[in-house]
Amino acid sequence: MSLTLATFEGVHKAALALCTARGAHYIGGGTLLVRRANEGDLSIETFVRVTDPGLAAITLGPGRITLGASVPMAAIAARSELGALARAAKTIGGPAVRNMASVGGNLFAPSPYGDLGVALLALDAGVSIESGAGREEIPLETFYTRRQRLPSGSIVTAVSFARAALANLRFAKVSRVKPKGSAVLTIAAVLAEQDGVVSSASIALGCMAEAPMRARAAEAALLGRKLTREGIAPALAAATADTAPPTDAIASAWYRRQVLPVHLGRLLVG
Protein backbone atom coordinates (compact mmCIF):
# COMPACT_ATOMS: atom_id res chain seq x y z
CA MET A 1 0.00 0.00 0.00
CA SER A 2 2.15 2.84 1.24
CA LEU A 3 5.76 3.60 0.41
CA THR A 4 8.62 2.74 2.71
CA LEU A 5 12.30 3.55 2.66
CA ALA A 6 14.55 0.85 4.10
CA THR A 7 18.11 2.02 4.79
CA PHE A 8 21.08 -0.34 5.21
CA GLU A 9 24.73 0.29 5.95
CA GLY A 10 25.92 -2.58 3.79
CA VAL A 11 25.01 -4.29 0.57
CA HIS A 12 24.50 -7.74 2.04
CA LYS A 13 21.48 -6.92 4.20
CA ALA A 14 20.06 -4.72 1.49
CA ALA A 15 20.21 -7.63 -0.94
CA LEU A 16 18.24 -9.69 1.54
CA ALA A 17 15.63 -6.96 1.90
CA LEU A 18 15.27 -6.76 -1.87
CA CYS A 19 14.28 -10.44 -1.84
CA THR A 20 11.85 -10.24 1.06
CA ALA A 21 10.24 -6.78 1.25
CA ARG A 22 7.08 -6.06 -0.74
CA GLY A 23 7.60 -4.28 -4.05
CA ALA A 24 11.24 -3.63 -3.18
CA HIS A 25 13.48 -1.64 -5.53
CA TYR A 26 17.06 -0.50 -5.01
CA ILE A 27 17.36 3.27 -5.00
CA GLY A 28 20.50 5.09 -6.10
CA GLY A 29 20.18 8.80 -6.80
CA GLY A 30 16.40 8.55 -7.15
CA THR A 31 16.18 10.24 -10.54
CA LEU A 32 14.64 7.16 -12.15
CA LEU A 33 12.94 5.34 -9.30
CA VAL A 34 11.35 8.21 -7.36
CA ARG A 35 10.19 9.60 -10.67
CA ARG A 36 8.38 6.33 -11.38
CA ALA A 37 6.82 6.35 -7.92
CA ASN A 38 5.74 9.98 -8.36
CA GLU A 39 4.17 9.08 -11.68
CA GLY A 40 2.00 6.47 -10.00
CA ASP A 41 3.95 3.22 -10.50
CA LEU A 42 2.22 1.16 -7.83
CA SER A 43 4.67 -1.75 -8.15
CA ILE A 44 7.11 0.31 -6.09
CA GLU A 45 6.38 -0.18 -2.39
CA THR A 46 9.80 -0.26 -0.75
CA PHE A 47 12.85 1.81 -1.59
CA VAL A 48 16.01 0.01 -0.49
CA ARG A 49 19.12 2.10 -0.06
CA VAL A 50 22.67 1.51 1.12
CA THR A 51 24.71 4.22 2.84
CA ASP A 52 28.13 2.49 2.61
CA PRO A 53 30.50 5.33 1.58
CA GLY A 54 32.63 2.78 -0.27
CA LEU A 55 29.96 2.70 -2.99
CA ALA A 56 30.61 6.37 -3.71
CA ALA A 57 34.35 6.00 -4.33
CA ILE A 58 36.25 6.65 -7.55
CA THR A 59 39.43 4.55 -7.56
CA LEU A 60 42.09 5.39 -10.12
CA GLY A 61 44.26 2.29 -10.00
CA PRO A 62 47.39 1.85 -12.09
CA GLY A 63 45.75 -0.60 -14.48
CA ARG A 64 42.03 -0.21 -13.86
CA ILE A 65 39.64 2.56 -12.92
CA THR A 66 36.71 1.70 -10.68
CA LEU A 67 33.59 3.80 -10.20
CA GLY A 68 31.36 2.93 -7.25
CA ALA A 69 27.70 2.50 -8.11
CA SER A 70 26.68 5.50 -5.96
CA VAL A 71 29.11 7.91 -7.61
CA PRO A 72 27.05 10.79 -9.00
CA MET A 73 27.55 12.16 -12.52
CA ALA A 74 28.84 15.45 -11.11
CA ALA A 75 31.72 13.67 -9.37
CA ILE A 76 32.77 12.07 -12.66
CA ALA A 77 32.35 15.32 -14.57
CA ALA A 78 34.61 17.05 -12.04
CA ARG A 79 37.52 14.61 -12.54
CA SER A 80 39.57 15.84 -15.47
CA GLU A 81 41.68 12.62 -15.29
CA LEU A 82 38.59 10.83 -16.58
CA GLY A 83 38.87 12.72 -19.87
CA ALA A 84 36.13 11.90 -22.36
CA LEU A 85 34.22 9.99 -19.68
CA ALA A 86 34.04 13.18 -17.59
CA ARG A 87 32.72 15.02 -20.64
CA ALA A 88 30.17 12.26 -21.19
CA ALA A 89 28.96 12.62 -17.60
CA LYS A 90 28.55 16.35 -18.15
CA THR A 91 26.12 15.78 -21.02
CA ILE A 92 23.67 14.11 -18.64
CA GLY A 93 20.74 16.13 -17.25
CA GLY A 94 21.21 19.56 -15.73
CA PRO A 95 23.37 20.38 -12.69
CA ALA A 96 20.80 19.10 -10.18
CA VAL A 97 20.32 15.78 -11.97
CA ARG A 98 24.10 15.35 -12.19
CA ASN A 99 24.38 15.89 -8.43
CA MET A 100 21.92 13.04 -7.89
CA ALA A 101 22.03 10.53 -10.75
CA SER A 102 24.38 7.64 -10.02
CA VAL A 103 26.60 5.37 -12.10
CA GLY A 104 24.60 2.33 -11.03
CA GLY A 105 21.30 3.95 -11.91
CA ASN A 106 22.60 5.00 -15.31
CA LEU A 107 23.16 1.35 -16.21
CA PHE A 108 19.45 0.70 -15.67
CA ALA A 109 18.22 3.86 -17.39
CA PRO A 110 15.81 3.16 -20.24
CA SER A 111 16.32 4.81 -23.64
CA PRO A 112 16.71 7.75 -24.31
CA TYR A 113 18.63 7.98 -21.03
CA GLY A 114 21.76 6.13 -19.93
CA ASP A 115 24.44 7.99 -21.89
CA LEU A 116 27.25 7.23 -19.46
CA GLY A 117 26.65 3.52 -19.94
CA VAL A 118 27.27 3.93 -23.67
CA ALA A 119 30.73 5.31 -22.94
CA LEU A 120 31.35 2.52 -20.41
CA LEU A 121 30.26 -0.06 -22.97
CA ALA A 122 32.79 1.22 -25.49
CA LEU A 123 35.39 1.01 -22.71
CA ASP A 124 34.48 -2.68 -22.37
CA ALA A 125 33.71 -2.13 -18.68
CA GLY A 126 32.91 -4.86 -16.21
CA VAL A 127 30.00 -4.64 -13.78
CA SER A 128 30.32 -5.85 -10.19
CA ILE A 129 27.11 -7.33 -8.87
CA GLU A 130 26.41 -8.55 -5.36
CA SER A 131 23.54 -10.74 -4.36
CA GLY A 132 22.69 -13.29 -1.74
CA ALA A 133 24.50 -15.81 -3.94
CA GLY A 134 27.74 -13.89 -3.72
CA ARG A 135 29.70 -11.48 -5.84
CA GLU A 136 30.43 -11.61 -9.57
CA GLU A 137 31.80 -9.39 -12.28
CA ILE A 138 30.24 -9.61 -15.72
CA PRO A 139 30.96 -7.71 -18.93
CA LEU A 140 28.71 -4.67 -19.33
CA GLU A 141 27.58 -6.01 -22.70
CA THR A 142 26.28 -9.15 -20.97
CA PHE A 143 24.70 -7.03 -18.24
CA TYR A 144 22.69 -5.09 -20.83
CA THR A 145 21.20 -8.30 -22.22
CA ARG A 146 19.82 -9.28 -18.82
CA ARG A 147 19.40 -6.05 -16.86
CA GLN A 148 15.61 -6.49 -16.83
CA ARG A 149 15.82 -9.96 -15.32
CA LEU A 150 18.70 -10.05 -12.87
CA PRO A 151 18.11 -12.48 -10.02
CA SER A 152 16.19 -10.74 -7.24
CA GLY A 153 18.47 -9.27 -4.59
CA SER A 154 21.11 -8.26 -7.13
CA ILE A 155 22.82 -4.94 -6.45
CA VAL A 156 25.27 -3.32 -8.83
CA THR A 157 28.15 -2.12 -6.67
CA ALA A 158 30.71 -0.81 -9.18
CA VAL A 159 31.92 -0.65 -12.76
CA SER A 160 35.55 -0.82 -13.81
CA PHE A 161 37.53 -0.54 -16.99
CA ALA A 162 41.12 -0.53 -18.25
CA ARG A 163 42.86 2.79 -17.78
CA ALA A 164 44.61 2.40 -21.15
CA ALA A 165 41.30 2.37 -23.03
CA LEU A 166 40.20 5.69 -21.54
CA ALA A 167 42.84 7.67 -23.45
CA ASN A 168 41.32 6.50 -26.74
CA LEU A 169 37.67 7.14 -25.82
CA ARG A 170 35.60 9.33 -28.12
CA PHE A 171 32.06 10.29 -27.18
CA ALA A 172 29.20 12.11 -28.88
CA LYS A 173 25.69 12.71 -27.63
CA VAL A 174 23.33 14.02 -30.28
CA SER A 175 20.43 16.04 -28.91
CA ARG A 176 18.07 18.64 -30.25
CA VAL A 177 18.32 20.92 -27.21
CA LYS A 178 21.65 22.10 -25.85
CA PRO A 179 22.56 21.96 -23.09
CA LYS A 180 20.50 19.24 -21.40
CA GLY A 181 18.69 17.64 -24.28
CA SER A 182 17.77 13.97 -24.14
CA ALA A 183 19.63 11.89 -26.69
CA VAL A 184 18.53 11.36 -30.26
CA LEU A 185 21.39 8.95 -30.11
CA THR A 186 24.69 8.51 -28.29
CA ILE A 187 27.91 7.11 -29.72
CA ALA A 188 31.11 6.15 -27.95
CA ALA A 189 34.18 4.64 -29.55
CA VAL A 190 37.54 3.37 -28.37
CA LEU A 191 39.95 3.08 -31.29
CA ALA A 192 43.57 2.06 -31.48
CA GLU A 193 45.73 2.63 -34.56
CA GLN A 194 48.89 0.90 -35.68
CA ASP A 195 50.89 1.76 -38.78
CA GLY A 196 48.26 4.29 -39.80
CA VAL A 197 45.35 1.86 -39.76
CA VAL A 198 42.81 0.86 -37.13
CA SER A 199 44.09 -2.09 -35.12
CA SER A 200 41.19 -2.39 -32.69
CA ALA A 201 37.78 -0.80 -32.49
CA SER A 202 35.02 -0.79 -29.95
CA ILE A 203 31.91 1.20 -30.83
CA ALA A 204 28.87 1.53 -28.55
CA LEU A 205 25.50 3.00 -29.49
CA GLY A 206 22.77 4.46 -27.29
CA CYS A 207 19.13 4.89 -28.37
CA MET A 208 19.65 2.41 -31.20
CA ALA A 209 18.02 -0.47 -29.32
CA GLU A 210 16.23 -1.13 -26.04
CA ALA A 211 19.62 -0.98 -24.27
CA PRO A 212 23.05 0.36 -25.29
CA MET A 213 24.64 -2.00 -27.83
CA ARG A 214 27.97 -2.64 -29.53
CA ALA A 215 28.10 -1.90 -33.26
CA ARG A 216 29.92 -5.12 -34.07
CA ALA A 217 29.57 -4.90 -37.86
CA ALA A 218 30.93 -1.36 -37.92
CA GLU A 219 33.79 -2.35 -35.63
CA ALA A 220 34.80 -5.21 -37.95
CA ALA A 221 34.54 -2.95 -41.00
CA LEU A 222 37.00 -0.49 -39.44
CA LEU A 223 39.81 -2.96 -38.81
CA GLY A 224 42.78 -2.39 -41.05
CA ARG A 225 41.24 0.79 -42.47
CA LYS A 226 42.52 4.32 -42.35
CA LEU A 227 40.56 6.92 -40.40
CA THR A 228 39.69 8.89 -43.51
CA ARG A 229 36.37 9.56 -45.20
CA GLU A 230 37.06 6.73 -47.65
CA GLY A 231 38.51 4.46 -45.00
CA ILE A 232 35.49 4.60 -42.73
CA ALA A 233 32.88 4.33 -45.50
CA PRO A 234 32.32 0.57 -45.04
CA ALA A 235 31.94 1.08 -41.26
CA LEU A 236 29.34 3.80 -41.78
CA ALA A 237 27.47 1.57 -44.21
CA ALA A 238 27.39 -1.12 -41.53
CA ALA A 239 26.55 1.20 -38.63
CA THR A 240 22.85 0.41 -38.45
CA ALA A 241 23.28 -3.36 -38.64
CA ASP A 242 21.29 -5.18 -35.94
CA THR A 243 19.89 -1.93 -34.56
CA ALA A 244 16.27 -1.65 -33.42
CA PRO A 245 15.95 2.00 -32.41
CA PRO A 246 12.93 3.16 -30.44
CA THR A 247 10.45 5.74 -31.65
CA ASP A 248 9.81 8.22 -28.85
CA ALA A 249 9.15 11.90 -28.24
CA ILE A 250 12.74 12.74 -29.18
CA ALA A 251 13.01 10.99 -32.55
CA SER A 252 11.57 8.25 -34.71
CA ALA A 253 13.33 4.97 -35.36
CA TRP A 254 13.62 6.00 -39.01
CA TYR A 255 15.32 9.28 -38.13
CA ARG A 256 17.75 7.61 -35.74
CA ARG A 257 18.80 5.16 -38.45
CA GLN A 258 19.17 7.97 -40.97
CA VAL A 259 21.44 10.14 -38.85
CA LEU A 260 23.56 7.48 -37.11
CA PRO A 261 26.07 7.13 -39.98
CA VAL A 262 26.39 10.90 -40.23
CA HIS A 263 27.26 11.32 -36.56
CA LEU A 264 29.44 8.22 -36.45
CA GLY A 265 31.37 9.66 -39.40
CA ARG A 266 31.90 12.93 -37.55
CA LEU A 267 33.05 11.11 -34.42
CA LEU A 268 35.56 9.02 -36.37
CA VAL A 269 37.05 11.64 -38.66
CA GLY A 270 35.33 14.90 -37.61
Binding site: L5, T31, V34, R49, N99, M100
Partner: peptide, 19 residues
Amino acid sequence: CSVIIDGALKLSCLTLAES
Protein backbone atom coordinates in the same frame (compact mmCIF):
# COMPACT_ATOMS: atom_id res chain seq x y z
CA CYS B 1 11.64 22.19 -6.91
CA SER B 2 15.41 22.81 -6.90
CA VAL B 3 16.95 23.34 -3.47
CA ILE B 4 20.53 23.36 -2.23
CA ILE B 5 21.41 20.41 0.00
CA ASP B 6 24.80 20.55 1.73
CA GLY B 7 25.97 22.99 -0.91
CA ALA B 8 24.80 20.98 -3.94
CA LEU B 9 21.84 21.80 -6.14
CA LYS B 10 19.30 18.97 -6.02
CA LEU B 11 15.73 18.22 -6.99
CA SER B 12 13.53 18.00 -3.91
CA CYS B 13 10.83 16.11 -5.85
CA LEU B 14 13.18 13.15 -6.40
CA THR B 15 14.98 13.32 -3.04
CA LEU B 16 13.58 11.26 -0.18
CA ALA B 17 13.14 13.30 3.00
CA GLU B 18 14.74 10.60 5.13
CA SER B 19 17.93 10.76 3.11
